[in-house]
Write a protein that binds this DNA or RNA. Structure first.
Lengths: 378, 378
DNA sequence: AGTGATCCCGTGAACGTTCACGGTACAGAC
DNA sequence: GTCTGTACCGTGAACGTTCACGGGATCACT
């Protein structure tokens, strides 16, 4: 005789004017089928030691009650599969989905789960995404942009791995060697004989950085007057991206003229900004874009203005996403082995979780280098 | 005085020759800090009612022990955020990441989590992905391709929503109205005056369909002899995709000559197959591709063969991914409002979870129509 | 000294499931 | 009739956390 959970007066799945009660538990099913918890477990999980008729009856009762086993209770008693959260800023740039997939691939090989949170919608910052994710995963991999390492506090002890970490900041992360990338690009352009280079930088909306108010960003600074310039343009207030800074600094140290045009981080914005720039000044020899997507926009802008690529002007992107190979002309770019980066991220997180890696240590902060992929556009 | 968990002889995080014991629990931290469970909880979750010094000491102890709160125990007592699993076949086609992001967006608005599983790597089928996901989520949204509704058995009562569901199959799902899409495409091509159409179909690897052995797929069937054809070509064994079948049938019913060329589901494969076809026969008026990615490959193949688009031959894709706008010429396509589809999927799952929607019912199976997006290529 | 009020902190209970074990019924063999 | 085995089913315990409540200090004010 079954005596568990007989005190509940009302049915667990009754709907009173549209509002449903709490979810049915295993005890509700057991009571309804006239059996015990354990028998319900055996029926639901297809375990042996149960009469087929009973199994069928229990499953039927579970179905009508809308019983769904609690994955928490199950995970609690059975021991968990580890799962990591992944914060990325959106889908408009194929780079992020590609990165996400590489993480999912690497994590799946370890038998892990990946909870993806895309914080690109709405006004929420990456930090709120981490906060959203934190209670439900064992660690977080965050593409939060730079200067967001204080996200560590939100995790209540769980490891955080920051991507595109600014070298010099504390904490575990993967950073990219932008000075090296810049040298690859400028070396290649020098080889091609480009003398006037335009860098198409991205305006990263940093809603999280309270100390960096939204500054007025002029459309272009450092006018391209080829050598003996007035430096009036250079003193304008502009907020460069971390990548952009690396390019500007290296160009300055080499004495190469580098004009910066800022645009939103999309192909359309790049098209618009570059078109405006082309309409109001001489055409540069080379356009270097913040990423491949913006390079695609640049290609369209140049083509619309009758500039032939690569004959009149070469174009380089950054990221190395597959899209580049579909463009006409195919895009020369600074590419990243995303599969390797994803694997690396998962390996680092594994170390952080099992304690063999501590967040402050030098081993927990790796640096990845881009490599030059020469195709048609430069 | 604290008396809990004092019987454990060994430290919970001691590492003996690289092998670590079980994870530290809240009781271990409590014992180490000389306080109780509840105090540890207060310290970790930044709750009031605790002396700052104590909070600090507890957090320090938690850190050295490597304590990570069990999300299962937490979820069990606090009531769970619902989370859905998402099975997608890969990253090479931007369509799937875009769809995934749309689901993540819609789910996030409800406060849900999305666990993404990408089963495109290795030999695993979508079914094994569902199996992998099932115990850890409240429902599964699966882009499993057609004929995989038996995945329902793997879920132990949890709802399954199938995408690209074949209309006529049972179960909850979202299906696409391919006959309608085909009519849109053929109407538009008729308007443009195209008489000979080539359909570039995808070879979907159906490892799950045991009854469909890997048939020999000829490079192209139904040779383009414009009207009074011998139907020798038509009798060759070819396995059309569901989309392809819709196009072929509609073309047949309209008396339009439709040649089918099959290729792998990638831009590169499309390029290769179409290039081979162009080298060995007359150029069609129009190329209709299985999806935008293959259309991109087709554009490159045509361009390589000196065929001008759209003057000599028009090209249409399918899916409407943002990539199409970056190509030259910009791609005319049958587009899908992916954000709406993602929202719809989440809404359906919500209904299935709370019981207001039953899997067999007509309401649980919705059909989405593509719309024509005319750009430069056709 | 007594009395609240306030601030810390600790203890039973509960969340919903599975594991390990123990029990009952029924069959067949002696 | 008793014994042994097998098939089926039920009950305590445990997983690790938070909630609700209760108790002991400390301090101020009568």
């Amino acid at each position: 005789m079954n005596r568990e959970a007989d005190a509940s007066g009302r049915a667990p799945h009754s709907s009173v004017d549209g509002v449903r009660d709490k979810r049915a538990t295993i005890l509700d099913v057991a009571a309804a089928a006239g059996v015990s918890r354990q028998t319900v477990t055996r029926a639901m999980n297809n375990m042996p030691g149960i009469k087929p008729a009973t199994r069928e009856r229990v499953q039927q009762e579970a179905r009508t009650l809308g019983y769904v086993p609690s994955r928490f209770a199950k995970g609690l008693v059975q021991g968990s599969r580890t799962s990591v959260g992944l914060s990325i800023p959106g889908l408009t740039n194929p780079y992020f989905p590609a990165f996400a997939s590489s993480v999912v691939e690497a994590a799946t090989q370890r038998g892990w789960h990946v909870v993806v949170d895309d914080y690109g919608h709405g006004e929420s910052s990456g930090l709120s995404s981490v906060q959203h994710l934190a209670p439900h995963v064992d660690a977080v991999i965050g593409y939060l942009g730079p200067h967001t390492l204080n996200a560590n506090d939100l995790l209540s002890g769980r490891p955080l791995l920051v991507l595109d970490r600014v070298s010099g900041e504390a904490g575990a992360g993967i950073s990219f060697d932008y000075p090296y990338a810049a040298s690859l690009a400028l070396d290649h352009l020098a080889l091609r004989g480009s003398s006037s280079v335009l860098y198409l930088d991205a305006i990263i909306s940093m809603t999280t950085a309270a100390d960096a108010p939204a500054v007025e960003i002029p459309l272009h600074v450092a006018p391209l007057d080829d050598g003996g310039g007035t430096d009036a343009g250079r003193s304008e207030p502009v907020q460069l991206s971390v990548r952009g800074k690396a390019f500007v600094e290296l160009a300055a140290s080499r004495g190469v003229g580098l004009e910066v045009v800022s645009a939103g981080e999309s192909a359309e914005a790049a098209f618009t900004s570059l078109s405006a720039r082309l309409a109001s000044g001489p055409c540069p020899d080379a356009v270097l874009a913040f990423n491949d997507l913006m390079a695609a926009g640049a290609l369209k802008a140049l083509s619309a203005h009758g500039v032939r690529v690569p004959q009149d002007c070469v174009v380089m992107g950054m990221d190395g996403i597959p899209l580049g190979r579909l463009l006409a002309p195919e895009l020369t770019t600074l590419s990243l082995d995303l599969r390797a980066v994803g694997r690396m991220a998962v390996d680092l997180v594994a170390g952080l979780i099992d304690g063999s890696l501590v967040p402050g240590s030098p081993e927990s902060a790796v640096t990845v280098r881009h490599e030059l992929t020469v195709r048609e556009s430069a």
